[in-house]
């Protein structure tokens, strides 16, 4: 197979060093786990004169909870997410999504920030984080700006970062008591596979009434997306199987999937309904259990 084209490799130890390199060097790209980037470089789909390796920037690897907010450093690996009791307990949907990514080998290298910045419409961590209402901290030598996570995705395999910017953190409110979440993924097989579609749901109940509903789908549009029409159908209402059925049906109408090697658009549209219904039922049950 063709070798990886040559580049200069820079190995900063701190975030500020990394940002300065990113700012100063022409045609530079950050590399985190490399599980996507090295494949793209080898294929010639991406090129770079300089790679800035974030592997030594340990300050970007953390998972912590502060003031009812969970914060995750962008260079945190999927394996670190999986080992976190906080994530497993408070946001099982993110735990399940991380578990479904790649293989043990990929999860030991691949990072949350890399998965998001790679901006695949099928990225498994995107729907859970959209459903958790996550924000992204984006840093440059000029300072840090906070954007809604959805704004990070500009199109298939395109993120909205400006030159010199780096995703540094993902943060979202800790789901309160009475909430339930679910992550559902359909692939061509179970292990080491990209999603045909993936769905994440967050529900928060108050005395049987749905106070908040957030539904996000992946691989059904140019970017991972929320389903506001379906969410509105649920909010403020007493949940029922029928209502969930109707909301899942609304997702079928809202998605804009494509035909590709993994599935047809028609099949994805139908699965958007099936998996959303399944995710809503699952999250509803978990929310009720959480309320008891």
């Amino acid at each position: 197979m063709r070798p990886i084209p040559s580049f200069s490799l820079h190995r900063p130890k701190t975030l500020s060093e990394a940002l300065e390199l990113l700012q100063a060097l022409e045609d530079a790209r950050p590399i985190a786990g490399g599980t996507d980037l090295l494949v793209l470089l080898r294929d010639g789909a991406v090129s770079a004169k300089h790679l800035i390796d974030l592997g030594g920037v340990h300050e970007l690897q953390y998972i912590r909870e502060e003031n009812d907010e969970i914060r995750i450093g962008a260079a945190t690996t999927h394996a670190q997410l999986l080992r976190s009791e906080l994530i497993a307990e408070k946001t099982p949907l993110l735990h399940e999504a991380a578990a479904s990514i790649g293989s043990v080998q990929i999860r030991n290298r691949g990072t949350l920030g890399g998965n998001l910045c790679n901006a695949s419409p099928a990225a498994d961590t995107a729907p859970p984080l959209l459903a958790l209402n996550a924000e992204a901290a984006v840093a440059s030598t000029g300072g840090t700006r906070i954007i809604p996570l959805g704004d990070l995705f500009a199109g298939p395999k395109m993120n909205s970062l400006r030159p010199g910017e780096l995703l540094t953190e993902i943060r979202f409110p800790t789901p309160p008591a009475g909430s339930g979440t679910s992550f559902q993924k359909l692939g061509r097989r179970r292990g080491l596979t990209l999603a045909v579609i993936n769905v994440a749901v967050y529900l928060c109940l108050e005395g049987g009434v749905c106070r908040e509903a957030r539904i996000a789908l992946g691989a059904v549009a140019a970017t991972p997306i929320r389903m506001p029409a379906a969410e509105e159908m649920l909010e403020g209402r007493q949940l029922s199987g029928e209502l969930i059925e109707a909301a899942a049906s609304a997702c079928r109408d809202q998605v804009r999937p494509i035909d590709d090697i993994r599935a047809s658009a028609e099949y994805r549209r139908e699965m958007a309904y099936v998996l959303t219904r399944r995710a809503l039922m699952d999250a509803w049950e978990r929310a009720r259990r959480d309320t008891l």
Binding site: L9, R11, I31, G34, T35, L38, D53, Q105, N108, R109
Partner: peptide, 15 residues
């Protein structure tokens, strides 16, 4: 790599 399985084809030697 430090005891954890990784694909050595996706690790750069200097890393």
């Amino acid at each position: 790599l430090d005891g954890a399985p990784v694909n050595s084809c996706l690790v750069l030697a200097p890393q």
